[in-house]
Amino acid sequence: MAASVRLLTAVPICDGHDSAISTINLEFIHHGMEVVYLGYHRSARDIVRAAIQEGVDAIGISSYNAGHIEFFAEVVALLKKRKAADIGVFGGGGGTITKADAAIMQRKGVDRIFFAGTPMEEMIRFVRQAYGKRQRRGVRLPRFAARKAKVAAPCIGITGPGGAGKTTLIDELVLRWLKTQPNARIAILSHDPSIVGKGALLGDRATMIYSQDDRVFMRSLATRGRAGGLSPETAPWVRAMKQGEFDVVFVETVGIGQEAMPFRAKWVDKSIFVMSADYGSQLQLQKIAMLDVADMVVVNKGDLAGALTAVAEVGRRIERGRNGQRVIATVAKRHRDPGVDRLFEELRS
């Protein structure tokens, strides 16, 4: 079932006030909407790029640090410039946006500004009415000018338990791709769980700071009741991305536990199982079925106490399984981590 409304929310550049938007995000989800949350301190370019890539119905901006007239206007103008003026724009900012400001902003193309004290129900009603019945586009990728002949891009599937650092790891890999290959284009298909009977918070973009780039195309999908860490929409997106003139495609599942590999073999060229160094006992390790089938195993959080033991244990566990699997230890949160460098080299070759 498709969500009633799909939104992108963010806090403007040079503004860290994310408390209101965090609360509002939860309300939206509670009312069945899918919310792609971009985080705080985000430029108009980042917001518009993400909104278009994510195919949202509207953008919600929470602005507390002034400069809102210019900022909202910049978002509206950029949408128009990118031929995406059908994406709505609304927002608020506690007491910092005056009625006079709001009038100017609405004249410049903002659909609605909410003032302090607006009941949540009123905001939900507005969003449903204004954006609820839109025709949503299907799979659509950007077209790049003057690209080489079509070759299917290699697809890397990344899975593992929640909190292992999959998102950070992908972002660090993207940074290396962007830096070392000035023409590289990257696609990311990310998944987050839908809450039963409700919407979904798609929050990976807020953490993926380096992936907010014109050379990166990212789409966040909600599982919408599908088990196994992927979405009913996954298949068409993977197909399109592989044929979409990218140099590499990353597919990240939601955090999943010990079950079998979620990827279909024909989709991914390489599968990576990411786990944290603090997985618990050796017995736990024996139960992880994905260790037998992943092409590579990344033991992340190598800075934790006991990480060395963890890498050794995982190595032994894998030796008993299939041949040719590799174990790499990383500290993805560390800038220029040599482990991530090694992983990058492996993937590129």
């Binding site: 040079c14 503004d15 301190h41 640090n65 002034a66 400069g67 900022f71």
Partner: peptide, 23 residues
């Protein structure tokens, strides 16, 4: 300090013009 200064950005950085000297 204004937002751009708090976030270590110059006043001529992309997209911060509206925030110069505000707050």
């Amino acid at each position: 300090f204004d937002g751009p200064t708090l976030y270590g950005l110059d006043s001529d950085a992309d997209g911060v013009f509206g925030k110069i000297g505000e707050g």
